[in-house]
Amino acid sequence: MKELVIVSGKGGTGKTTVVASFAGLARNKVVCDADVDAADLHLILAPEVEHRHDFVSGHKAVIIQDKCSQCGLCRDLCRRDAIDAHYVVDSLECEGCGVCYYFCPEKAIEFPDNKCGEWFISSTRFGPMVHARLGIAEENSGKLVTLVRQEAKKIAEKRQFGLILTDGPPGVGCPVIACIGGASAALIVAEPTVSGRHDMERVIQLANHFKVPCLLCINKYDLNPAETDALESLAKSEGIPIVGKLPFDLTFTRAMVQGKTVLELGGDSNGAKAVREAWSSLSQALGL
């Protein structure tokens, strides 16, 4: 079984648009939305939720005011300054280290489990999908990413599917690290801008660090030919195969507005043709 994760470094380069289109082309696969912080794939795939689960991870401290003697030890020990002068814990600052809970001489601090999101197993017109919603301002996104990837893998194994298509988060931090480790390959969707190139360099470094082979798809390649050349040279010097080049085509935006993929809305558009070509080279590269 192969797991292809789609990343970009820079946000907004077209990861989700590409994943949604590939989801319509790939057979026998599970789709996984691992961008749990700002998940958008469901807006195109319109999943029907079949199983809904709470995502509980870590703890948060809560001070029981009646028991608190205001001795100040917790405030001294808390390195996040998460406890104010009235002995109320700021749940945005509390990371759940439990130091206050452990040391409180009055046992006035409770340390309940923290529900920080939900995750779902759904069905879509393109097959099964695993996705999630991290609560706003929550932590532990890396753990939720790991969880949705594991669940997608379970479904793929059970149904003997050969592919997991995973939509990744932007950046190079905690959620991306959780998303990329152990994947068969990372498809980088990059745009030909100086920012796009800078961010692609960093995501390549990350993939190299975790020994995950990269593939490149250039989106809006015709926006800046010189930058597209620069992306291609960078890919060449890193030994990264280029599987596709998608044009700037408003059909992509129009399709998104209607909750469709570019293939569903404008099968004859330049965008749709380029997506099909990219999928064909990608399938070959992955040996599907």
Partner: peptide, 14 residues
């Protein structure tokens, strides 16, 4: 600020 709505964004906006 970074994209998203989780802890890095809160650290940047707070």
């Amino acid at each position: 600020a970074p994209p998203g709505t989780s802890c890095p964004v809160i650290a940047a906006m707070k």
